[in-house]
Amino acid sequence: MKKAIINLLLVVIAIIQLYPLVWMVFLSLKSNSEIYGGGSMGFPRSLRWDNYISAMQTGNVLRYTCNSLVITAAAVLLSTLLASMSAYSITRMRWRYSGWVMMIFLMGIMVPSQAVILPIYLILQRAGLYNTQPGLVIVYLVFALPTAIFILSGFLKSLPVELEEAAALDGAGILYIYHRVILPLTRPALSTVMVFTFLSCWNEFMYSFILLDREKLRTLTVGLLAMKGQYYTNWGAMAAGLTIAALPTLAVYLCFSKNIQQSFVAGAVKG
């Protein structure tokens, strides 16, 4: 009896968590006459895939998606590379100020990104990077560094020192050790960091909204906002756009759900 009530409660919550998204997907497959004719709730009468085509082409969702992909991919790769290099030199190499550098990086975790938007906007303007994709990539990559360095250095600390000792005895240089010995071993932590960064870059809104002020460059999160005005009366296409925006993160999440959950817990418990 008690078990039944608990299970019922958990199922109800699961429905609450899923239903808005299911509603979105259903909506994206309905014609406008169905939506406005009292059929906005249930399962679509016939599957209207043309909403997706209309969102992709006239709604520019295809372009927004490509922009998001390019920016996210660049930010993920660069930040993971830079974070892994720094984390390696900070945690494994021997130099006097490594502790300080680590502390400064970790301070970044405490900074609410919203609070530095004006200086970043001005800096990028002066550097000629305002309204360019590389500008946004740099911002994303910097915001990703603290958590990435935190997770990677935690992992690197757990590797035995003998790794480097053995390699150094064999006459290997530091670049060889990092590239051939350490990097392959950190692969699990690297994938955790990459997935985490992917999610935060793909979903980021404020900086993209402010730093890319050209229709051609818009990312998905911002492009959907433009679509909202243009597609005020075309709910089907709008819902299709939202579904397209949600799909990549959802797919990555369902494939790597264990990894992602671990990385969110690791990312949270850094303070």
Partner: peptide
Amino acid sequence: VYFIPVVISSSAIAQL
């Protein structure tokens, strides 16, 4: 399942 909304962008959620 409970975690799913976390991975979707707040921008899309707001529009939804």
